[in-house]
């Protein structure tokens, strides 16, 4: 196995895997654990992954991440899960410079607005912007046509703009 191959796969797809897991579990720490497990499997299966095309590797990683995240949700359904507020993991007790503070506030506001979208729109926005998936890739994963994905993206962006305006006006 080539370490540089693993490094490249990790560098190219760790963000995709993390946000694919986060979309299902909605918890920072759990999404990190799942990302670790996915790449642990990738490392152990590098001899099988190396001959594959990039799109196949990407698809495999996404599928494993989603399956592990769904497994986690299934196994945790009887447990009392903490209802982690959106953006809680980025809260900081240290005083921040004004620029950083604005950035944090912007992140929290946008993430809160995304959480306010319905599930389909939230999924499309998360996969497109956070997991950096193309319209065609989202279509493949969700079974929704590329044209519908595009129109939903437009609609979701409009909804987010309205939510953020309303938030700013408060």
């Amino acid at each position: 196995m080539s370490t540089s191959s693993f490094d490249k796969i990790y560098s190219d797809y760790s963000r995709l895997v993390y946000w694919a897991a986060y979309r299902v579990v909605a918890q920072n720490e759990t999404a990190e654990d799942i990302t670790q497990q996915v790449f642990e499997r990738a490392y152990l299966n590098m001899d099988k992954l190396e001959p594959l095309a990039d799109s196949q590797i990407k698809s495999w990683l996404y599928r494993v991440a989603t399956n592990l995240a769904l497994d986690h949700v299934r196994h945790a359904k009887h447990e009392q899960l903490s209802d982690e507020p959106v953006g809680a993991e980025i809260a900081d007790t240290e005083p921040l410079p004004e620029e950083e503070l604005l950035k944090k506030k912007r992140m929290e506001a946008v993430r809160k607005a995304i959480e306010g979208l319905d599930e389909t729109n939230r999924t499309i926005i998360t996969l497109h912007y956070f997991s950096e998936m193309t319209v065609n890739e989202i279509s493949e994963k969700t079974g929704i046509s590329p044209g519908t994905i595009k129109s939903r993206l437009v609609r979701a962006r409009s909804l987010l703009a309205d939510m953020l305006k309303a938030e700013a006006a408060e």
Partner: peptide
Amino acid sequence: IDALLRAVADDCSNEIDFEGIKLRAVKAA
């Protein structure tokens, strides 16, 4: 909104310790 979403997605991703996750994954494997 498109630009804002890209910026926020980048900011949120930058908050994640991907290097630490990678080290733990390799160690566990």
